[in-house]
Simulated scan of single mutants.
Amino acid sequence: MDLYEKRVVLITGCSGGGIGHALARAFAAKNCLVVATARSLASMSDFQDDPRFFLQELDVSSGESVRHALSTTLEKLGRIDIVVNNAGVQCIGPLAEVPLPAIEHTFNTNLYGALRLIQAVVPHMASRKKGKIVNIGSVTVLAPVPWAGAYTASKAALHALTDTLSELWKPFTDGIVERGEIVLV
């Protein structure tokens, strides 16, 4: 099958053992070309020799890293059809005692990291008038737990951001931003 017949899916947070890694495998099994990203290529070493995967180092907390990964992907593959914002970090502890830098790191990854990628990829998708962005939230937003206040707050903010962007772009696109169920296309 030719590259232009396959959907190009960029997924953040594809380190081994996590949701992103499993999603990368599932999209590849559906005959998609997967741009698997993580802060370290070594964490995705089992994808290395598989032609269904294009591996990229990507730290979503860095605007420069986001721009580099997108430009490299677009240069090599020509387009991005689907983005899955999956990268995330936990922040464990009683909210009143967690050091503020740890909470800032959680928001910088879980919320601002997704927004960095959204802002970087939307011009490409808008110019093509097609594309999907899926933001991975958390059930803890519906049932908060005492030791995950910063994580839950960052995911609740991501849900609100996703809903807002979805409404904003609805008149111009075919649902470019979604949250909720992952449907492998």
Rank of each mutant, 00 (worst) to 15 (best):
P51W: 04
A69L: 00
A69T: 03
A36H: 04
H68V: 10
A42C: 02
E64T: 10
A26P: 05
S40T: 14
R25T: 13
L33G: 00
G20V: 10
L33R: 06
A24G: 03
R79P: 11
A29T: 07
A24W: 06
M44C: 06
L23K: 08
S71M: 05
Q48A: 10
C32H: 12
S65R: 08
A38N: 14
S71I: 01
K30A: 15
D50V: 00
L23C: 07
P51R: 07
R52Q: 14
V66I: 02
A29M: 02
S43P: 10
K30D: 14
D59L: 00
L33N: 04
C32S: 15
D46A: 13
S45R: 15
R67I: 01
D59S: 03
H21T: 05
D49N: 14
A22M: 14
S62F: 05
S40A: 07
N31H: 11
M44W: 04
V34R: 12
L33H: 06
V60D: 00
G16D: 13
L58I: 04
Q56D: 04
D46I: 02
V34W: 06
H68G: 04
S40Q: 13
L55A: 09
A29S: 15
V66M: 00
L58D: 05
I19M: 14
R39M: 06
R67G: 03
L33T: 10
G18P: 13
A28N: 03
L23V: 05
K30L: 04
R39A: 00
S65Y: 02
D59E: 10
G18F: 07
G17W: 09
C32M: 12
S43N: 15
L58K: 04
V66N: 04
F54V: 13
L70G: 10
L70F: 12
T73F: 03
C32E: 00
G17Q: 12
A29N: 13
L74K: 09
F27R: 07
S40M: 11
R79A: 12
G20D: 09
L33Q: 12
S45V: 13
Q56F: 07
A42Y: 03
G17T: 11
R39I: 11
A36E: 02
L58P: 05
A26S: 11
G17R: 01
L41C: 06
G18E: 05
M44G: 07
I19T: 08
L23S: 05
Q56T: 09
V60H: 02
A69R: 00
L74S: 09
S45N: 15
A42P: 03
